[in-house]
Design a protein around this nucleic acid. Structure first.
Lengths: 364, 364
DNA sequence: GCCAAATAATTCAACCACTAAACAATTTCG
DNA sequence: CGAAATTGTTTAGTGGTTGAATTATTTGGC
C-alpha cells in the first residue's frame, strides 16, 4: 500500500506540467495532506524528488514549496543496435537526455559478439559520463530489429543476420556493465514507448516504423502490448496482396514488399495504398484512434498521407463515425534508443519503493 | 486494501476446483490464516461464500470446513438480441445457468422499440423466476450485433437495421427492470467473455464469430479489449482481397464477402483461405496464440481447419517458432448471452467490497 | 503598522487492516 | 489413551492512513 501510494505521488508530480506543492498533490490524489507530506518526505530523502522555490505568487497564504523530479538520481541507459549504427544514451528521471553517443557503421559484416562488444564500450562511456554527472544508472534496455524471447535472447534478427544470440550475456562481458540489469526488446516496441512519452495526450496508438523491415509497436491504454511471447507488431508480414510478390519470409504479398525501405527507394507506387490496407486492418480490429508513422516514413509523411488516408476512409468500418488520426513521429532516429532509456526510468517511476529500498541499502 | 484482499480471497475460492478451506486459501494467497479468516467471515456474512461440509478426510488434524461460492446470492442477467431470436438468461455466482428463455422470431420487421420491449418482457420473466429462486439480480448486460457507444447507445446494427438506439432507456421502460444497472456490448465481445469462462487455461485468445456479419472478441491477459471507443473486433471488414468483391460497407474485398454466412451457404471455395489471411494478420500483429471459431464456424470447424491452418503456416512470421492453436467454440449459440451474464458476476467477483456494502445497506 | 483571513505544511491521537505467535478445537495414529 | 497434526480463533503489535489541531508564512483591510 505504501508502495502504491509512493508511486501515485511520484506519478502525479511527474505528470504535472508545473511544480506542484504537497497540497496540490494531495488535492490531485485524494490523499490527505498529512499522508502526502510523509510520502513526499520519503521520496525527497530517497533522492527521487527535490524541493524547488515556490512558483509565482497567487493570493494570500503561506507560499507553497514546489516539487519536481530530481535531475541527479536514477537514470536509464538506452541502447540500440541497428543495421547501420550503434547508439547509447542516458536519460534522467525527468526524461531529459543527458548523454548521447552514436556510432555509424555497417554491422552486417561484424559478427554479433563483435558488434555487441563495440556497443558495450559505447554504453560504458555513456554510463561513466552520466555517473560523473551525478546520475546513477538503474538499468539498461537494448533495442534490436528482431524477435526477442524472454531473458534477453534474440531469436532472430533477419537484417543483422543474427540467430539465437544472448545479447545480455555479451553486454555483461564489459566490466563497466557487469551486474547492471539489462533487458532486450524489439526496436519498434521501444520506439513506440519513446513516442508515448513525447506524444503526451494519446494513451492508445500504433507506432509503425519503416526501416529495411517494417515493425510496429502497439500502445494500449498507456501500456506497451508485447504479445504473449513478445512477438507482437510484425506488421511487415501482414498480407496485403494474397497472391502478390514473394517475400523472404516464405509468404507472398507481405506489406514489407510494397512499403519497405527497398520498395520506397525504387519509387514503388503502391506503397501508400499497401500501408493503408494494412493499417485499416489494425484499426478495424483494435479501434486504434491514432497512428504514428516513424522510421523512414517520418520524413516522407506528407507524400504518403493522402494515399493512406484514402484507404482508411474506404476500408475502416467506423471511419465515418470518427476519423483515424495520422501523425509523423516526433522523435526521429532516436526513438528506439530514447524509448529504451525511458523504459528503465518508467520502471523506477512505477515502483519507487524498490528504488528507495535499493538506495537505502547502498548506504548501509 | 481490504477491497483488494476480499477480491483476492473470493477469486481464489472461485478458481479452485475443489472446496478449499480457509487454510488452503491462506496458503494459495500468501495471506495469514488469521487475515483470511476475517475476510472469509465477511464474505460469508455478505452472502457471497458459504461453508460446506469438509471434503474427504486426509491425514490427522482438525477437519477443514470447505468454502464455495453461494448459489443464492448475486446473479447476472444476460440478454441477447439477434437477427432471428431474443434470449435472456440468469447466471449465478458459480457460473451456473439458473434461468434461460429463448424466443425465436425474425426481428427485422419489428421496430427497435418493439423488439426491446419484447426482450424486456423476457428479461422480466427471467428476473422474477430467479429472484423467486433466492437470487438477487445485480445487473444486466445486453449483447447486440453492432457498434455500441458508451452509455448503452447502439450506434449502428446493420443486420437489425438499427441506428442510434438507446437500448438501456428502452429496457428501463419495463417496470420490473427499472433501476437495474444495464450495460450494452457487442455480441462477439460478450461471446468471447463467455468462452473465457469455459476455456479455462488460455487468458489470451481471439474469438471469431461467423454470423450474417463476422465479429471478433479479443481477450488479452484475461481482459476483454474493447478499443478506445468500444469498436474493436470488426474483423469482418478487414480487407483480404484489395480489389475483390464490393461490400455493403462501401469497401472492397472484406472478409465478410468470402466467409460470411451467405458466402458459406453458397459454398464459397475461398472461405477458409480468406479466414486464414485475416487471422494471420491478427497473429502477426498481436502474437495471439489461440483462435476460437464460434457462431456458424463452430459446427463446420473440421471442414475449415486445414484451409485456415495452411494460410497461417505460410503467412504468420512466427509460425515456425510456435504454431497457432485453432479451436471450435465450446459454447454454442448461447455464448453471447452467457458472456453477458458472466460480465455481471465477473464485476461482483472483482469487486466484492461494493457488493457487501450494497447488501448491508439493503438491511439498514 | 497591525491584525484578520488565507493558505501551506507538520504534529499527534485515533483507527483500520494485516502479521506473528500463542491457543483452542478436533481429528488420526501409535 | 496420549502424542502429533492440522484447522481455525484470539490477542498483542505494527505500519500506514485519516482528521483535527497546530504552526508557519504570506496578503490585504483598516
Amino acid at each position: 500500500m505504501r508502495a502504491h501510494n509512493l508511486a501515485l505521488v511520484l506519478q502525479t508530480v511527474a505528470n504535472s506540467t508545473n511544480q506542484p506543492s504537497r497540497a496540490a498533490v494531495s488535492a490531485a490524489t485524494g490523499l490527505t495532506r498529512a499522508t502526502v507530506s510523509a510520502l513526499v518526505d520519503d521520496l525527497v530523502a530517497g533522492g527521487l524528488l527535490v524541493e524547488v522555490d515556490p512558483p509565482p505568487r497567487t493570493g494570500a497564504g503561506r507560499p507553497a514549496v514546489g516539487l519536481t523530479l530530481t535531475s541527479t538520481g536514477p537514470a536509464g541507459l538506452g541502447l540500440e543496435i541497428n543495421v547501420d549504427y550503434l547508439a547509447a544514451c542516458v536519460v534522467d528521471l525527468t526524461g531529459a537526455v543527458r548523454q548521447r553517443f552514436v556510432e555509424h557503421a555497417d554491422q552486417r559484416p561484424a559478427d554479433p559478439a563483435r558488434a555487441l562488444a563495440t556497443l558495450g564500450a559505447l554504453a560504458a562511456r555513456a554510463r561513466l559520463a552520466a555517473e560523473a554527472d551525478g546520475l546513477t544508472v538503474a538499468g539498461a534496455a537494448l533495442a534490436v530489429p528482431g524477435l526477442v524471447a524472454g531473458g534477453g535472447l534474440v531469436r532472430v534478427a533477419p537484417n543483422l543476420g543474427w540467430q539465437d544470440i544472448d545479447a545480455v550475456a555479451e553486454l555483461h562481458r564489459v566490466p563497466e556493465l557487469a551486474g547492471l540489469p539489462v533487458t532486450v526488446d524489439n526496436e519498434a516496441n521501444l520506439a513506440a514507448l519513446g513516442e508515448l512519452r513525447v506524444t503526451g495526450g494519446d494513451p492508445t496508438f500504433l507506432y509503425i516504423s519503416g526501416e529495411i523491415g517494417i515493425g510496429a509497436g502497439l500502445v494500449l491504454d498507456g501500456e506497451l502490448y508485447r504479445g504473449v511471447r513478445g512477438w507482437s507488431g510484425e506488421i511487415g508480414h501482414v498480407t496485403v496482396y494474397p497472391d502478390g510478390r514473394p517475400c523472404r519470409c516464405g509468404s507472398r504479398g507481405c506489406l514489407e514488399q510494397y512499403a519497405g525501405q527497398e520498395a520506397l527507394e525504387s519509387g514503388e507506387p503502391l506503397a501508400a495504398a499497401a500501408l493503408g490496407i494494412a493499417l485499416s486492418a489494425v484499426v478495424n480490429l483494435l479501434d486504434v484512434p491514432v497512428i504514428v508513422l516513424g522510421g523512414a516514413y517520418a520524413p516522407i509523411f506528407e507524400r504518403l498521407r493522402e494515399g493512406i488516408e484514402a484507404e482508411l476512409r474506404q476500408r475502416v468500418l467506423t471511419s465515418g463515425l470518427a476519423p483515424v488520426v495520422l501523425r509523423p513521429a516526433a522523435l526521429g532516429a532516436d526513438a528506439a534508443m530514447r524509448g529504451a532509456a525511458d523504459a528503465i526510468i518508467r520502471a523506477v517511476r512505477e515502483n519507487p519503493a524498490t528504488w528507495l529500498r535499493r538506495s537505502s541499502e547502498r548506504y548501509a
